[in-house]
């Protein structure tokens, strides 16, 4: 029992780091600014969440664990605000999103 939780934590850590990499690949592959934003939000939600969960499982219920939760809350409350501010500023600046044509499937 004492072995399994840190092991699960390690798995979560690896999965989270993997999702961060996927998000970064998306940041490079996506065609325009607005679609890149979606790739970045994969990093900020699933990547960050899994990494923090993994660390939390390794830390246990200590002060360190509470700080990890605090970091998670900070990311989850603040990052959408920054994303929204970016998207709105880009739209106000007149940056046109590349949209898919309505017919093609």
């Amino acid at each position: 029992m004492n072995e399994i939780l840190p092991f699960l934590g390690g798995l979560g850590l690896l999965a989270g780091a993997g999702f961060c990499l996927v998000g970064a690949v998306g940041l490079l592959r996506m065609p325009d600014f607005y679609t890149r934003m979606h790739a970045a939000s994969v990093i900020e939600t699933l990547g960050a969440g899994l990494i923090l969960c993994g660390l939390l499982l390794q830390a246990g219920f200590t002060l360190v664990g509470a700080k990890l939760l605090m970091i998670g809350l900070l990311i989850f409350f603040a990052s959408p605000t920054a994303s929204h501010a970016l998207a709105r500023a880009a739209l106000l600046r007149g940056l046109k999103p590349k949209l898919a044509s309505p017919e093609d499937k």
């Binding site: 850590l13 961060c20 970064a24 600014f33 990093i43 900020e44 960050a48 660390l55 500023a89 600046r93």
Partner: peptide, 26 residues
């Protein structure tokens, strides 16, 4: 190519740097 792309990347780097600090601490 636009300033917003660069800012988006900077924001992502900030988030990942935060995670990196946590993981490196462990």
């Amino acid at each position: 190519p636009t300033v917003f792309d660069r800012l988006q990347a900077a924001n992502s780097i900030g988030t990942v740097a935060m995670l990196l600090l946590a993981v490196f601490g462990f």
